[in-house]
Computed example of a mutant assay.
Amino acid sequence: MEEERNELPAPPKTRYKLFKYATMVVLFLAVFFGLGYFGLEATSTSEFCSSCHEMKPQYYTWKASSHSEVECDSCHIQPGVENYAKAKGEGILELYKNQTDNYLAPIKMPKLIPDSACEKCHNLATRDVTASGDIIIPHMKHKKERIKCTECHSGVAHGKISDRKVTYKSDYGKWDEKLGVAFMSDKKYTSPDMDTCMECHKARKVSVECKTCHETTMVPKNHKTEEFKAGSHGKIQSSDLKKCEQCHSYMSKESYDLFKEEPVYSQFLEKGSTDTSGTSNGLTVTQYAKTNTFCKDCHGKKPESHKISSFMTRHGTLSKDTQKCFTCHDNRITSDSPVTRVQCASCHPSSHKDNWRKGHPIEVPQNQKFDKTCLKCHVEKTCTKCHKNN
């Protein structure tokens, strides 16, 4: 009888409880995995990254970049379940730091983006020139030399904003799409830097001649004319100097900083707009020629007019345009010109030394200019060699 009782079905009330618990378990698992799936999907979007204040600079610069159609996790999380789970675990830790205000700023990547992330979209085997075709850049050759993609393209997605020190906590409220565009408009932070190429080539003892990296079409058409070589290149406008600087700055044997200007993001924050047209900052063509030593190779040679026997006595009357003289020479006692140290004052020293007014027999105001009253004591012929008689 005992065995027969054990084989009897469970009472209706018990069966109902079992069914209820089983249903709850199934629903719980469905909700857990469903929410888990959608949660993972939601936290994997680039928009989710911007929900934290400290990520706004990275988000808005990415949105203004050429990689804005590529989700963050495509580059920042490596393929594989293990890497994905690890990234999500680290994300929970970062969320805790965010809520407790215990994170470091500016944010910096603990590791560089690996080449494999870039190669998911870019075929290095066919990348021998830039998209515009003006620069020769065999990517596979660089890869064989173990040169990482980020060594040249580190600013392509975020414009190196952490290195530029503009991602501190006090600045997060200022970030929006306009500011992101302003930061990414500065090409020297987003495009490969020629300085990096030159330094790398020199370190590896690779040729730094123009033809190594540039097509022959890079030479402007007006540079190929005889007129340009004979002297018309010196008649350019000051506003064109920045264009010349793009190539000729690398041809100078000495470094200089003639074109220092306010960064575009500072212009935006202060004025609400940016001026990316660029100017020469008041620099003249003559000043540039004296500073860039590339000019010295030609202008350092003595002109034919200087070789005549009577040049020393006639040089003051040989040219009506004395400004041409100041391309190489200066009218000051001291000069930093890399072209020549011979100045007007080398042979024609000024009689007005420092503090000459102090020892003058009569008081001379600071703004006093040369006029006829000076000729009561001085010789007109001597004074008018330098001064104009007003």
Rank of each mutant, 00 (worst) to 15 (best):
A87P: 10
M312L: 13
S68F: 04
M194R: 09
C244T: 03
C197M: 07
L258G: 04
K381Y: 02
N222F: 09
A157S: 11
K160F: 06
S154P: 05
K235R: 05
T276K: 11
N331I: 08
N222A: 12
R341A: 15
L27A: 15
F28K: 01
T291D: 09
N123E: 08
R127Y: 12
K221M: 12
V26A: 14
Y265H: 09
R332G: 15
E380C: 07
T382M: 07
K243R: 05
T43E: 12
K143S: 11
A85I: 13
K385F: 10
E119H: 05
D321I: 08
N389Y: 08
T23Q: 10
Q58P: 09
L93V: 14
K20W: 07
Y189T: 09
Y168D: 14
T279E: 06
Y256N: 03
F32H: 06
H67S: 13
E261C: 03
P57G: 05
H142F: 14
S170L: 11
S207N: 10
K178Y: 02
K260L: 07
N102S: 11
L269T: 08
M194I: 13
G34L: 07
T212N: 12
K20P: 07
C72V: 05
T373F: 00
P365Y: 00
K307D: 11
Y84R: 01
G272H: 05
Y16C: 15
